[in-house]
């Protein structure tokens, strides 16, 4: 087991295509590395799974948001019409639930949509203006047409020389260290 590296964030390899990146990610995972991340200019299917990502909590969050929105929406109208300010109009029922449905529906969607977007950003840890990977000059191409794989130094198996050699063996275009 290599000793922990403190003055380096990780080692990054650059690939020319999504296929190469996915293949490299699989090999890296098989090699026993766990603390790593892959970067691509568009969503590549199967890539997150290749680096060991299991299942997103997001759909559950959105469901909870939807339920909260719906329940709040209906109870607000119920409270206003039955408890807070009951109006007797020709003996019609105070809890006239069919006419409460449009607002209940809209609030369900509203809270669910906010949970989807805010939940996605929160789980992703964004906004994060500074991140070590931006120190690599060629990383600017990750938002254009290049694909990157970064093994982080907090991985227990990380060793500056060994990891670099391993990544080079994956036929990466370039392999560079990432400053913290």
């Amino acid at each position: 087991m290599a000793e922990k590296e403190k003055n380096i964030y990780g080692i990054m390899a650059e690939f020319d295509s999504a296929d190469e990146l996915v293949a490299a990610s699989h090999s890296t995972f098989a090699e026993g590395y766990r603390k790593m991340d892959a970067y691509s200019p568009y969503p590549v299917h199967g890539l997150a799974e290749a680096i060991g990502f299991k299942k997103s909590k997001l759909p559950m969050l959105v469901l909870i948001g939807a339920i909260v929105g719906g329940v709040l929406g209906f109870s607000m109208q119920y409270y206003a019409s039955v408890e807070s300010y009951p109006l007797n109009i020709g003996g019609r029922p105070l809890n006239s639930w069919p006419s409460f449905l449009p607002i209940t529906f809209e609030l369900t969607i509203l809270v669910a949509a906010f949970s989807a977007v805010l939940g996605m950003f929160a789980l992703n840890g964004l906004p994060m203006p500074y991140h070590p990977v931006f120190n690599v000059p060629r990383f600017a191409l990750a938002s254009r047409d290049q694909f990157f794989l970064c093994i982080e130094s907090k991985d227990p198996k990380f060793d500056r020389k060994e990891t670099k050699k391993f990544l080079e063996s994956l036929k990466a275009r370039t392999v560079v260290k990432v400053d913290p």
Binding site: S25, D37, A38, Y39, S40, P41, V44, L47, A48, A50, I51, F53, F121, N124, L126, P127, M128, P129, Y130, H131, V133, F134, F139, A142, S143
Partner: peptide, 8 residues
């Protein structure tokens, strides 16, 4: 927001 294109 500091988007970096991470797979996850």
């Amino acid at each position: 927001m500091g988007w970096r294109g991470s797979a996850i």
